[in-house]
Design a protein around this nucleic acid. Sequence first.
DNA 1: TTGTATGCGTTATCAA
DNA 2: TTGATAACGCATACAA
Lengths: 317, 317
Amino acid sequence: MMTVSRAINQKPGVSAKLRAKILALADKMDFHPNNVARSLATKQTRTIGLLVSDITNPFFAQIAHGVESTAYDFGYSVFLINTMESAERELSATNSLMRQRIDGAVLCSLRQSEKSLHKTIGQFSAAVLLNRELRSPVPNLVTINVNDQRGAQIAIQYLLKKGCRKIAYIAGPTDSISNKRRLKGYRAALGSAGIPFNPQMVESGMPDTEGGRSAAAALLARQRRVEAIYAFNDLMAVGAMQVCQESGRDIPGDVRIIGVDDIPLATIIRPQLTTLHLNLASIGSLAMRTLIDIIQGKEPSAQAIQINSELVIRDSA
Amino acid sequence: MMTVSRAINQKPGVSAKLRAKILALADKMDFHPNNVARSLATKQTRTIGLLVSDITNPFFAQIAHGVESTAYDFGYSVFLINTMESAERELSATNSLMRQRIDGAVLCSLRQSEKSLHKTIGQFSAAVLLNRELRSPVPNLVTINVNDQRGAQIAIQYLLKKGCRKIAYIAGPTDSISNKRRLKGYRAALGSAGIPFNPQMVESGMPDTEGGRSAAAALLARQRRVEAIYAFNDLMAVGAMQVCQESGRDIPGDVRIIGVDDIPLATIIRPQLTTLHLNLASIGSLAMRTLIDIIQGKEPSAQAIQINSELVIRDSA
DNA sequence: TTGTATGCGTTATCAA
DNA sequence: TTGATAACGCATACAA
């Protein structure tokens, strides 16, 4: 048995001749090493959990692509968990992943409270938190976050430079961490320009096109002279764009619009969307490589990684 | 040990008192049953493989959502494999899934040859093939296919009724099975109307927006008087729509366009896309339920399930 | 270089 | 109702 094990796992201690014989026979017999048994013996599953809140959202789909791709490169299999924004599902996911004895997890955009979150991540021996910060550092855990505040400031500054003063923020879910950071950046940039913050210029909704539509409709109903809209993400930006167009406003003539993420839709829609570009697939890939570092006990380069977005100027602003 | 096992697995043979005590203690100890060991003992992993060719494509993302969701409902975990249209990756995926001892697999849009495919699926003890037919039936396997030919005929007939005669087909990858079926329906519908098939009216490309753009550009370069375009999917339809608009053609005034899938983009784009609607998430859900039936040894309702699409008339045709 | 005992954490089976 | 034993298929540690 051990000789076969050594041959199959490419380990030394087997003569080339015997190894070839074993490998040939294994192939002939359609033998596939049983990862379940192997995992039980080694206490490593070479398996990770990927938790996203909506795989249907291009934002997460792109991240999932990056994660899966490098997981494959490094010989890891990935369990997909799609919580559909449900808090209950977010919790039961942890249980499921624990039972599977995953080696680590990539957790995207978790919404739970800081306290609940600590309990969740405390269970994993390795984890990467995407799109979520932690007040106190946690061992064997790295956070990867977009510098939302900086991005928001860049976007708003651009709009200010274009002469806009009445700049609205179409916000995402109020409990979303990145939403809070973007709102902060929005306020800070306005503040620097001496423009007082007006809560009437902020309207939130679900982070999809429909959410963007209803938020924009509500906003325009009470603020008819909006000159620019900074949206939580591209999906919402597109929804807002539609509402503007349907009410006879020209983009960017009457209203300038800036989104965030640079999903494929941004260049499909007309006018093409000016947006804060993020290479989501490479962020997913980075998350996976970082997770592997943690799993393998290597010191990751940083406890909290910041990703800078870049304003891509197209036609909507 | 057995008493604990029985208590945790909600099996009979434990007094209510002892069971409560065990459960309370397990909770206090943060005990999570080890699925790896359980799987080794039971030879069932309650795990399935989901293979898609591009999770970034809304078509597959929606299906993945449906599969994952009902997998969760039935207590299954899902391994995600994203082949990125790579044939090599499609094959290595099979090996990976075999090693993980999955209970079954949902295989989407496989491109391999019939022969290679039989070898692939022969390894799984349960499988559902989405978007791929099989000439000879295979035990423990069900295929789920969209009635592409019927859909194509409905689309073309609609265009004919609108008075179009010069109807082009913007095709998907030439080795795609659904592409072949849609082409067949396209030809059949034209034939019934007494319009001879003109290969010059067919141009293929990758099944994304860019593919639709380049195919449409090539098509319009040699067939300037196209009156309608039937596209392989919505992504390609949108690409074609853009090319038409950029060349000054009005949609649907000058050119009518019909897509397939009804992805969210179809209602986001302007003009909104007339398309053959498919409830992708529910197809994914159906695939998963069917797979569970096979796994549990229940006779599935059919060996080959056909899904009918429905023409949703919006603004592009 | 090759081979043998032991244990990973669970469940099936049989006994008390 | 409760408990003891063996087995699942591997890898680790140790012998030959």
